[in-house]
Design a protein around this nucleic acid. Structure first.
Length: 431
RNA sequence: GGAGAGAUGGCUGAGUGGUCUAAAGCACCCGCCUGCUAAGCGGGAGUAGGGGGUAUACCCUUACCUCGGGUUCGAAUCCCGAUCUCUCCGCCA
C-alpha cells in the first residue's frame, strides 16, 4: 500500500509515477476525494465524542435526579449522531481501503519504461550456450525416455498441468532443493525457514496477491485457508504486525515450499512439458532491511540468485523488467533466465526460461502487513523494506539441467555440484 | 470431535459499570547521589487517527485491554458471536 500522506501531499508525483505502469490518474483523485470526506467526518465524530465523554462524567457526579435524566437525554442524542456519522465513516474507510489496495507500487526512477515484456532490456548474458553435435531434445522427451518423468500419469491422477517425477528424476529435484538451500544458508548468510504451505487470507493481502490476483489462488472454502502461491507469502508474513527490535535488521530468510497456482490467466500457454504447472517447487529468499539499504540489497539478492546459475554452469541472462511488465507491489525487478537448448519454435533453437524474479518492494508490503522496526530503543517505529527473489524455481531448472546436460545416447550428466547430493552418481541413464 | 479454563501495554500482572487519564513490578531513557562490579532517589516514556500551530518543537482531541456486534448517558468490566491459546478425554501419522 502507498502512504496516504504521499498521495495527499504530492498527488502529481504519484499520478506521474503510476501512469508509467498504466494506472489512470483518476484512481488517485478518487482516493483523495474519499480521504477528504473521511477526515472531515473523523474530526466531527472526534469532537462529538469529546463532548459526550465530558457529559457522561458529569452525570456520574450529579445528585439531582431530574437534571440527571435531562442530561442523559441530551447525551443520548449526541450518541445517535455519532452512530450515524460512524456508519458513513466506516463506509468511506472501506471504500478508501479497497481503492488503496488496488493501487500498485510506484516504479523506481531507474526502472526502464515500457509497455510489456518485449520492452524488458537484457542487462547481461553470462556463459556460452553449449555447441551440440546432435539436435538437442526437449526435456519431455529426455525425461520420458529415461523413465524419470511421467506426464501422462500426472494428468491421470490430477489433471492437466500436473506431472510425476520418478526415480532419479525425483532425486535430481530433491538434490537441487537441498543444494540451493545449502548455498544460501552456508555461504550467503540466510536462515532457513520451513513454513506452513497454507495461510490465512490476511497474509495474501499483506504481500499483495490479494485482492487483485484472487483468480490465481487455490482456496479451501471449508477452513478458509489458501495454498501458498510462493514462499514469499508465509515468510514475509512471519513478522506481520510486529515491531522489530533495534539491531534485528537485516533479516535474511530462505525457504523451500511447493507453490500452487491456478494459472487461469495462462490458459493454453506453455502447456507442453513441465514449464508451467499448477504445483511447482521453489526455493525463495526473503529480506527485510532498513529503508536506506533496500536498493543495494536488491543487487546483492540478485547476485545471490545468480550464484546458483554460475555454479550450475548453465548459460543465463539477467533481464530488467520494465514499468509495463513489473509486479504489482515492487519498484524494481530483475529476472534471471536460464538457457534451455531443447525449447523454442524449432528443434535446437533454444529459449530463455525465467527461473527467478528478484524484487524490491520498499515499504509497500510492510505497510500492508504492518511490519516495522525501531532504529534504537524508544525510537519511533518505521516500516521495513521487503525484498524477495527465487533461488530458484525448480521445474525450469530441471528443464535447463536435462536439456543442457543431455548426451547423444539419451543419458543426462549430473552437474558436478549435485553429485554429492545424489549418492555420488554422475550420469542418469535409462533404468 | 467432547468437556473445561483463559486472552489486559515490550514482558509479568492487578483491575466486576463512573477520578481507569489502566495499579504495581521488570526492562528502557534522562537526571541526581554515592568512587565497591552496582544500588538508591526523582522524573520520563505506548500505538494509530484527526484538529490546531511560531510546523521534526509544542498544544488539543479521539480510538485502542484478542476481534466483531449489543446493552448503557457512560464498558477492560455486563450480554452475544468469532478467533486463538492452554488443560483433560477421544481419535490419529
Amino acid at each position: 500500500m502507498l502512504d496516504i500522506r504521499l498521495i495527499r501531499e504530492q498527488p502529481d508525483f504519484v499520478k506521474e509515477g503510476l501512469s508509467k505502469c498504466g494506472v489512470a490518474p483518476d484512481k488517485v483523485d478518487e482516493v483523495l476525494r474519499c480521504d477528504e470526506e473521511r477526515r472531515a467526518i473523523e474530526t466531527e465524530v472526534s469532537e462529538l465524542r469529546a463532548k459526550r465523554n465530558a457529559g457522561s462524567k458529569e452525570i456520574g457526579k450529579l445528585a439531582d435526579n431530574e437534571a440527571r435524566e435531562a442530561f442523559k437525554t441530551e447525551m443520548r442524542l449526541i450518541g445517535d449522531k455519532i452512530s450515524e456519522l460512524d456508519l458513513r465513516r466506516n463506509e468511506l474507510e472501506e471504500i478508501q481501503s479497497d481503492l488503496m489496495l488496488a493501487i500498485p507500487n510506484i516504479p523506481d526512477p531507474e526502472m526502464p519504461i515500457g509497455a510489456d515484456d518485449r520492452d524488458n532490456p537484457v542487462v547481461r548474458v553470462e556463459g556460452e550456450p553449449r555447441k551440440f553435435d546432435f539436435t538437442p531434445k526437449p526435456h519431455w522427451e529426455i525425461g520420458t525416455d529415461l523413465g524419470i518423468l511421467d506426464i501422462e500419469r500426472g494428468v491421470k491422477i490430477s489433471g492437466s498441468r500436473f506431472y510425476v517425477l520418478k526415480g532419479l528424476g525425483a532425486a535430481l529435484q530433491r538434490a537441487l532443493i537441498s543444494w540451493f538451500l545449502d548455498v544460501h544458508i552456508q555461504t550467503q548468510g540466510y536462515t532457513e525457514i520451513y513454513p506452513p504451505f497454507v495461510v490465512k487470507e490476511e497474509c495474501l493481502f499483506g504481500t499483495a496477491q490479494l485482492p487483485k490476483f484472487r483468480d490465481n489462488q487455490y482456496h479451501d472454502v471449508e477452513d478458509d485457508l489458501w495454498l501458498v502461491p510462493t514462499a514469499e507469502v508465509p515468510v514475509t508474513n512471519l513478522h506481520r504486525e510486529e515491531i522489530l527490535d533495534p539491531g534485528s535488521l537485516p533479516i535474511k530468510y530462505v525457504a523451500y515450499t511447493p507453490c500452487f497456482r491456478r494459472e487461469k490467466m495462462s490458459a493454453g500457454r506453455d502447456v507442453r512439458g513441465i514449464k508451467r504447472g499448477h504445483q511447482f517447487d521453489k526455493v525463495e529468499m526473503v529480506k527485510m532491511v532498513k529503508p536506506e539499504d533496500s536498493r543495494e540489497e536488491l543487487i546483492s539478492l540478485l547476485d545471490d540468485a545468480e550464484e546458483i546459475c554460475r555454479q550450475l554452469k548453465i548459460p543465463y541472462r539477467v533481464v530488467e523488467v520494465c514499468t509495463g511488465d513489473k509486479g504489482f507491489a515492487n519498484v524494481r525487478q530483475f529476472d534471471l533466465e536460464l538457457f534451455a537448448p531443447g525449447q523454442g519454435e524449432n528443434p535446437g533453437d533454444g529459449e530463455w526460461l525465467e527461473v527467478s524474479s528478484c524484487s524490491n518492494f520498499t515499504d509497500y508490503q510492510a505497510r500492508r502487513a504492518n511490519i516495522r522496526f525501531r532504529r534504537e530503543q524508544g525510537a519511533k517505529p518505521e516500516f521495513v523494506h521487503t525484498l524477495n527473489g527465487s533461488g530458484l524455481a525448480l521445474p525450469r531448472v530441471m528443464i535447463a539441467v536435462l536439456e543442457n546436460y543431455q548426451n547423444a545416447d539419451g543419458s543426462v550428466t549430473i552437474p558436478e555440484v549435485l553429485r554429492s547430493y545424489m549418492g555420488g552418481k554422475e550420469v542418469i541413464t535409462k533404468a
